[in-house]
């Protein structure tokens, strides 16, 4: 399997088929004499910014930490062993509500969108 081609930038869904993001980055373990092994995927703005360059990556991490607290200063990771299915989307055996991936969406819902009538 060609990792970059077949995994990177694919849609990620949780076990309830909720779209939680794209595979923004891959975390691999380098092993002597053997091909590298994926241990996790990364999602979120910090990973995306790092792909654009070191400077945007550092800036985005600072920004995320300032806005969301220390907890958000690092990219979100999902362990590779949680993967359930690779098709059009990649399904992970996680529940997005138990992660902090959607923290900003929740904030948006509670503070802004949810307060507008008819939401």
């Amino acid at each position: 399997m060609k990792l970059l081609r077949d995994l990177l930038d694919k849609q990620v869904v949780d076990r309830e088929q909720v779209k939680i993001g794209k595979v923004d980055g891959l975390v691999a373990e380098l092993r002597r004499g053997k091909p590298p092994r994926i241990v996790a995927i990364e999602l979120g703005s910090i990973t995306l910014a790092r792909r654009l360059g070191t400077w945007p990556g550092r800036r985005m991490a600072q920004l995320a930490a300032r806005l969301g607290g220390k907890r958000h200063g690092e990219p979100h990771r999902i362990a590779w062993h949680k993967v359930k299915d690779i098709g059009i989307d990649i399904e992970f055996d996680v529940d997005v509500r138990q992660t902090s991936i959607f923290a900003w969406q929740d904030w948006l819902r509670d503070r802004v969108i949810g307060r507008i009538p008819g939401a």
Partner: peptide, 20 residues
């Protein structure tokens, strides 16, 4: 582009990023 939930048939409350 960022892999969020999308769809015009969902309520804004279930789709805050999209409606924003």
């Amino acid at each position: 582009g960022f892999g969020w939930t999308w769809g015009e048939d969902r309520k804004p409350r279930d789709n805050p990023g999209f409606s924003a």
